[in-house]
């Protein structure tokens, strides 16, 4: 169950998509999301799908991995489609029985929503798949750096994100260990009513918290030993450089998507 979490996972590689400046990738992703949500005509989704597919092929990330990122949202997809199917009652009815009414508009909307969500997740997970978390936080730090004027602790936020991402696999491993340990002592983690299930989480959460706090203390000492002093006077080994191909990628995709949004609004 825990192994299915693919958020923040990174697949090292050297494809065109991997090499695009992370700042640009973030901007492209934001515009991509905006396009999916503003767009209400199928053209937007078609463009989004083509764009998404192209990026996946260019990134050389195995298609299986993208599907894996969609696994956790299957439930959400199911609920959304069912709700849309039954609650939207406008248009031509296909099927009617007592209060249940399925119309062409309902079918259309639910398919539309499913594709929209799939594209959203696939597109955004491609961002984390192809960008190392460090590069990602680096880019966020730099994109947000104008906000330093308003005394926003941009470096600290970026550092917190890096550490959080770094410890995701470690804590998952630890959770699994604690679960096995509690099972070995006879804890029943699977069965029972919802109340029992909630209760059975407590003996997992508490040891996990204690160990996380202890880890945090040790990590802080280790960071101090390595001369950490917040963001003051810090430099970076990896310099973010924008190559002409970055600008081409950014420019083209932005133009494309903005055009789509414009067309959509103009309709």
């Amino acid at each position: 169950m825990l192994k299915d979490i693919t958020i923040g996972q990174y697949f090292p590689g050297d494809s065109f998509v991997h090499r695009i400046d992370p700042r640009f990738k973030i901007i492209i992703t934001i515009v991509f999301i905006a396009m999916l949500f503003i767009g209400s005509s199928p053209v937007c989704l078609e463009v989004g799908a083509v764009f998404c597919l192209m990026s996946i092929i260019l990134s050389k990330i195995p298609f299986k991995m993208i599907l894996k990122s969609l696994k956790p949202i299957v439930m959400i997809l199911a609920v959304t489609s069912v709700l849309n199917l039954f609650l939207i009652t406008g248009g031509e009815p296909y099927f009617e029985w007592k209060f249940i009414k399925i119309t062409d508009q309902g079918v259309y909307t639910s398919v539309f929503m499913i594709i929209r969500i799939i594209l959203l997740i696939a597109g955004t997970s491609l961002l984390t798949y192809t960008t190392s978390p460090i590069a990602l936080t680096d880019a966020i730090e730099r994109l947000l750096s104008p906000l330093k004027v308003f005394k926003l602790p941009v470096h600290d936020l970026a550092m917190m994100m890096t550490i959080a991402l770094r410890f995701v696999p470690t804590l998952i491993e630890e959770t699994e260990k604690i679960m096995s340990a509690q099972k070995a002592r006879g804890a029943d983690l699977d069965g029972g009513s919802i109340k029992d299930k909630v209760k059975s989480v407590i003996p997992i959460i508490i040891p996990l918290f204690i160990s996380a706090v202890r880890r945090a203390g040790e990590l802080a000492t280790a960071m101090e030993c390595r001369c950490y002093n917040g963001g003051n006077g810090r430099t970076k080994m990896r310099q973010l450089k924008c190559s002409p191909s970055d600008f081409t990628a950014l420019g083209l995709s932005l133009l494309f998507m903005i055009a789509v949004i414009y067309v959509n609004i103009a309709q």
Binding site: P133, R166, T170, R215, E218, L219, A222, M223, R226
Partner: peptide, 12 residues
């Protein structure tokens, strides 16, 4: 320190 996991800050 003793625990290698608690000394590594970065993800790469």
């Amino acid at each position: 320190f003793q625990n290698p996991d608690n000394q590594i800050v970065a993800t790469i």
